[in-house]
Amino acid sequence: MQRNLFALLAGGLFGAGLLVSGMVDTSKVQGWLDVFGAWDPTLAFVMGGAILPMAMAWAVARRRGVSLLGTPIPARAEPRLDHALILGSVMFGAGWGLAGLCPGPALAVLGFGGWGGGLFLLAMGLGMVAAPALRRRLDRLPA
């Protein structure tokens, strides 16, 4: 029960932050990516603002080893740059550039973003369901 309550709070704060920061506005995201147009640096301020408290949280988490509700702090992934990480990030970046939404904002705009936001979320969900089959093929490729 506590886990769900704090998950709800974290999700709500994340959603409010996306709204306040303007990251639900696709023109700001595409403005950041558009280095040959009217470049908009807002996203860098958002990233900086988000990394600051999270870096402190990691410092605390490393010392404690477990969360307040007793879950072990997730270990670092092996620093391996595989096909799936690179191809996936390139695909994601292309989708992000095309529409200007990433997964967090795509969820946050569902309540007010009209049919377009809903359609994006639907397509993104389909992509997520299809991904594991593609991933199994990629993981069989030689490194």
Partner: peptide, 8 residues
């Protein structure tokens, strides 16, 4: 955009 974002 949605499909690429979801798969990627």
């Amino acid at each position: 955009g949605g499909l690429l974002t979801g798969i990627g």
